[in-house]
């Protein structure tokens, strides 16, 4: 399997829906991520935690999808949070000045304790 291809897998921890994402997120697959997030919101999920621990990097298209999904969640009285930002992924959030635009937790365990 191509380790840079986008991988998504959802699971539940109590009321929190965890979407584990791996690989690269760019304009070629950002729409797939948006579809998946919209699907979860449409299914009535109220708290979605995106675990980005396995993400290699993400481009501007991916950032836009994450912002759009967060905005959409807020309009549906739901919330989207992020965790597992490390290395280059965290640097890209910092470079884009986007750390403040999201609810970000350190590890998955940390996020589940707080959500």
């Amino acid at each position: 399997m191509n380790k840079t291809a986008l991988r998504m897998e959802d699971s539940h921890a109590g009321p929190v829906c965890i979407l584990s994402i791996g690989g690269r997120i760019d304009s070629g697959n950002a729409a797939d991520l948006l579809d998946r997030l919209n699907g979860l919101l449409a299914a009535g999920e109220k708290t979605i935690l995106l675990d980005l621990k396995e993400v290699l990097y993400l481009t501007s298209a991916a950032f836009r999808v994450l912002l759009v999904a967060t905005d959409e969640a807020e309009r549906n009285a739901a919330r989207v949070a992020l965790c597992g930002l490390a290395g280059q992924v965290r640097e890209l959030f910092e470079m884009g000045g986007l750390l403040e635009a999201f609810t970000i937790h350190g590890s998955r365990e940390d996020a589940l304790n707080r959500l």
């Binding site: 481009t59 501007s60 836009r64 912002l67 640097e91 470079m95 884009g96 986007l98």
Partner: peptide, 26 residues
């Protein structure tokens, strides 16, 4: 200039601004 989250959400032009800004920073 760094685009605001609102600008990025509003249009693809906002996304292009972010792309350029990320390139400059990285």
């Amino acid at each position: 200039r760094k685009p605001t989250p609102r600008e990025i959400i509003a249009s693809e032009e906002g996304e292009r601004l972010l792309a350029g800004y990320l390139l400059r920073q990285s």
